[in-house]
Simulated assay, not measured.
Amino acid sequence: MQQGRTAPLLAVEDLQAWYGHSHVLQGLSILVQPGEIVTLAGRNGAGKTTTLKAIMGLVARRAGRVSFAGEDILPLPPDSRFHRGLAYVPEERRIVPGLTVEENLRLGILASRHQREEARRIEAIAETFPRLKQRLKQEAITMSGGEQQMLAIARALMAEPTMVLLDEPSEGIMPVLVEEMFEQFVAMKRSGTTILLVEQNVELALEVSDRVYIVDGGAVVHHAPAAELRADPEIQARYCAV
């Protein structure tokens, strides 16, 4: 892989992953620089979600190299990766239904190294996500799907991760909330958070991303700046149609 002008925050090289006997990732390689939003695009079943899970250590059988902040983390368990500043927000959200918004947020810091900074973090997150600020005492299960997705992302941010892996954040969410959420991704980038995004809403992802890797058959088949891909509908139609 070509190196950028600065050392990458995340470097994935020749990543292989299996579910049982199914060889899902077949030599996938990507780079993510500090402060970028990078999107993994491609058709359903291309291997995008598996890529995020393998980076986070949630795929049992894997090979290759995953370097985060200069350290090879492939042998590490998921909790060690989390404590090194890597957070993951799965498509399922996994909000705890019996808890309030504020209590769900606290779960994100209880598992982190920042427990003494709980009040400050909740205040900062509430400013970043105004909808959540209005609902801190509300039971999380009573919120809309889009608001629950914001809560899942906000909970991941409680530990002040260096990088967040986001899996299909717009899935099943009203368009008005999707646009608001993607605006918050840009705000997260401005605050110094690096994002690796898996997203089927390619048009919107291209608006906020710096670069895009298109995945097909468990490997990268195209890589380009987001602006270049926006101007190439042929590539989008070839690889990104659901």
Score class of each variant (00 low, 15 high):
Leu10Tyr: 07
Ala219Cys: 13
Ala219Glu: 11
Ser112Asp: 07
Gln134Thr: 13
Ala124Tyr: 00
Arg5Trp: 07
Ala140Glu: 02
Leu157Lys: 05
Pro175Gly: 13
Gln33Ser: 15
Glu123Gln: 12
Ser144Thr: 11
Ala54Tyr: 01
Ala156Phe: 02
Gln236Met: 12
Tyr88His: 13
Gly27Asn: 09
Asp79Gly: 00
Leu136Ser: 03
Glu13Leu: 07
Val186Cys: 10
Ser191Leu: 10
Ala17Ile: 13
Ile153Asn: 03
Arg65Lys: 15
Glu91Pro: 11
Glu92Lys: 10
Lys133Trp: 00
Arg113Trp: 00
Ala11Leu: 02
Gly217Met: 01
Pro175Trp: 04
Phe129Ala: 01
Glu203Cys: 11
Leu197Lys: 01
Ala156His: 09
Glu234Gly: 13
Pro77Thr: 06
Val186Thr: 15
Leu76Ile: 11
Val38Cys: 01
Arg93Trp: 07
Ala152Asp: 07
Leu107Thr: 02
Leu107Tyr: 05
Val32His: 05
Ala156Ile: 11
Ala226Lys: 06
Gly172His: 06
Gly70Gln: 06
Glu102Cys: 09
Arg230Pro: 12
Thr162Pro: 00
Tyr19Met: 06
Leu196Thr: 12
Arg238His: 10
Val89Ile: 08
Ala219Asn: 14
Val66Lys: 00
Val220Cys: 14
Lys53Glu: 01
Leu132Gln: 07
Ser22Asn: 15
Leu132Arg: 02
Gly145Ser: 11
Thr100Leu: 01
Ile235Lys: 04
Ile125Gln: 01
Glu71Ser: 14
Pro90His: 11
Val32Leu: 03
Ala154Leu: 00
Ala159Leu: 05
Gly47Cys: 05
Pro34Val: 00
Glu118Trp: 01
Glu168Asn: 13
Gln3Asn: 14
Ile55Pro: 07
His114Val: 05
Pro225Met: 06
Leu10Glu: 02
Tyr239Met: 06
Arg230Ala: 12
Ala41Tyr: 06
Ala87Ser: 10
Val198Phe: 10
Leu166Pro: 09
Val242Thr: 13
His114Cys: 04
Glu139Arg: 15
Arg238Asn: 04
Glu168Ser: 08
Val32Ala: 02
Pro233Gly: 14
Lys48Arg: 12
Glu139Cys: 04
Leu105Val: 03
Ser22Leu: 13
Asp14Lys: 12
Arg238Thr: 14
Ala126Pro: 13
Leu136Asn: 05
Ala152Lys: 03
Phe68Thr: 11
Ala227Leu: 14
Ile235His: 01
Leu157Tyr: 03
Leu177Met: 12
Arg113Leu: 05
Gly108Phe: 09
Ala41Leu: 08
Ile37Pro: 04
Gly47Met: 00
Ala224Arg: 13
Ala241Tyr: 08
Leu99Asp: 04
Arg94Asp: 11
Ala7Met: 08
Phe68Val: 08
Leu165Asp: 02
Tyr19Phe: 11
Ala231Ile: 09
Ala219Thr: 15
Leu177Glu: 02
Leu157Ala: 08
Leu10Ser: 06
Gly4Met: 11
Thr49Leu: 10
Ser67Val: 15
Gln3Phe: 03
Phe129Arg: 01
Arg230Glu: 06
Ala159Ser: 15
Ala224Met: 09
Met150Arg: 09
Glu123Leu: 09
Pro77Gly: 10
Leu132Phe: 03
Ala69Ile: 12
Ala241Lys: 14
Ile173Lys: 02
Ile95Arg: 01
Leu105Met: 08
